[in-house]
Write a protein that binds this DNA or RNA. Structure first.
Length: 485
RNA sequence: GGCCCUAUCGUCUAGUGGCCUAGGACGCCGCCCUCUCAAGGCGGAAACACGGGUUCGAGUCCCGUUAGGGCUGCCA
């Protein structure tokens, strides 16, 4: 393979970064980086009405969050600025180049101003004509109409009866008849260039060697190949990855839950989990590995190993990967990832080390970072009546014969513990002693305590709970129950 | 409708003519562990869409059927 691999991700900023786009970007990134190539980001904002700066921001942020950083493209720090040898990387700012290529096509006779009305482009069967009735209009006629101020789109004069085919990197040979392509529009009547034209200009100018994109672009490919050839250029190699669908095999939509990656970020999905999960829809390394770092994926990625059938977005599997990645975070890393998901006062309550320790207690219990707050709150404030789970309180405290004794006898034992003795080693004999003397099971003993301390019957291990909370807090929370029962 | 693409457990996938009695993962079910909830360990159910070929031999190649999807814009 001669030369450097140059690939691009070319989103149009008309919405957020959705999962399909993120995966396409990821595949391009993995491929380029694994081959020592260049990953380019180009903003396809040719449609001025639909493109927004806000959307572009969201896409840039999304890619950066995922760790998919581009070598050439928009400057993430300065909107409108570009980084790389072929600026600008905003399509709307590349009009001079597009005009230049337009002139080449015009001079070579590959395009024509088409005066056809909508009616004239419609056949007797009511369907759109593929070839314009004006495709053989003379140059003089076009210039005359232009001079008269007539508004006309520019069309590509598509050759008839030509077979257009390419060796698709993921699908193998794909063939179209040029008769299916037709005289497509390059410039709108108002002079605005259209996607299929600018993409070719820019790919040539940016020296793109390989195009890996969604399957929805397959039918654009013959148009682009024809254009490359008309411009005297060898087309890049193309590859089309299948779409991501919902579990019901329908196109991904709001019904399937979040489609935008920022929604997953807000839910507390780790970017490394998201990337790992996304990479496995439509691609597999070939061995049984599933959990992989970005680095491992770069080494293994090859578009020829991509699947040809659409893959379903399985939320359960994303959840699984997120649990996996959360579990392997160090206490410090866990705290950092959690910062935006917890009340800031938690870190001041007893300091960051305390909070850090508390979080590790829940590390194997949560699937998403945003679940921490609802789980760990009682380590940062005493439960009040409204926090209590009525059923748990009834079962283990108010309607439990032995509750008062369980709480008071053990509390008495705890009370006797001196400074530095608030450890599992010192506490366990007290609990064990009571379990033995009372003949009650450990569950019968620990559950009332758990409810008294947290308001519910679910918490980390008994000793983790008691030791972490500390003597003062534990006794403060239990005393009201001893008095009340 | 036309054109193009696709088809292995519920889902993501391995599989490129004999290594397949079809492997892994998620999910699901059962058991173990156990102070709750989880986690963890062990085990289990679960697929080559259908019909024709080609071949000594087909999940793997060819054709058809069926079923999905994409495109069919002076959107990208």
């Amino acid at each position: 393979m001669a030369g450097t691999l140059r690939v691009r991700f070319a989103p149009s900023p008309t919405g957020y970064l959705h999962t399909g786009g993120a995966r396409t970007a990821l595949f391009n990134y993995l491929w380029a980086k694994g081959q020592g190539g260049v990953f380019i980001l180009r903003v396809e904002d040719t449609d001025e009405e639909r493109s927004t700066e806000e959307s572009m921001r969201a896409i840039l942020d999304g890619l950066q969050w995922l760790g998919i950083m581009w070598d050439e493209g928009p400057d993430p720090k300065q909107f409108g600025e570009s980084i790389g040898p072929f600026p600008p990387y905003y399509q709307s700012m590349r009009r001079p180049l597009h005009q230049e290529y337009m002139k080449k096509l015009w001079d070579a006779g590959h395009v024509f101003y088409c005066p056809a009305t909508a009616e004239e482009m419609t056949g007797p069967d009511g369907k759109k004509l593929t070839f314009s009735p004006y495709r053989d209009i003379t140059r003089e006629e076009q210039e005359k109409r232009l001079a008269a101020g007539e508004v006309m789109p520019v069309r590509f004069r598509c050759p008839r009866d030509v077979e257009v085919s390419w060796e698709d990197a993921v699908r193998g040979k794909v063939t179209f008849s040029s008769n299916e392509v037709g005289d497509f529009v390059l410039f709108k009547g108002n002079g605005q260039p259209l996607y299929n034209f600018v993409v070719v200009c820019d790919d040539i100018d940016m020296q793109i060697t390989n195009v890996l994109r969604g399957e929805d672009h397959i039918s654009n490919t013959p148009k682009q190949i024809l254009l490359h050839e008309a411009l005297g250029h060898t087309p890049p190699e193309f590859g089309h990855v299948p779409l991501i669908v919902g579990m019901d095999r329908q196109r991904l939509s709001k019904r399937h839950g979040a489609t935008a990656v920022d929604a997953y970020e807000e839910q507390g999905v780790l970017p490394e989990a998201m990337v790992n999960f996304l990479a496995l829809i439509g691609w597999a390394p070939g061995d049984d590995r599933e959990k992989m770092t970005l680095e491992e994926m770069k080494q293994a990625f090859d578009p020829h190993r991509c699947t040809k059938a659409a893959g379903a977005f399985n939320p359960d599997k994303l959840k699984f990967f997120n649990e996996l990645y959360i579990r392997e975070l160090s206490p410090d890393a866990l705290l950092e990832r959690l910062r935006r998901f917890i009340p800031p006062v938690w870190l001041e309550h007893r300091g960051e080390d305390y909070a850090k320790h508390v979080f590790t207690l829940f590390q194997e219990k949560i699937a998403y970072l945003n679940e921490m707050e609802a789980n760990a709150w009682y380590f940062f404030r005493d439960p009040v009546e409204a926090d209590n789970n009525e059923k748990s309180v009834a079962k283990f405290l108010t309607e439990n014969e032995s509750a008062k004794q369980v709480l008071s006898e053990i509390a008495a034992g705890m009370e006797a513990l001196g400074d530095g003795e608030w450890t599992e080693e010192k506490l366990a004999p007290i609990v064990d002693g009571f379990v033995e003397s009372s003949g009650l099971g450990r569950g019968k003993v620990m559950q009332p305590w758990r409810v008294a301390l947290t308001g519910d019957a679910i918490s980390p291990g008994f000793y983790d709970l008691v030791v972490t909370l500390g003597k003062e807090t534990v006794l403060r929370r239990v005393q009201p129950w001893i008095d009340r029962l």
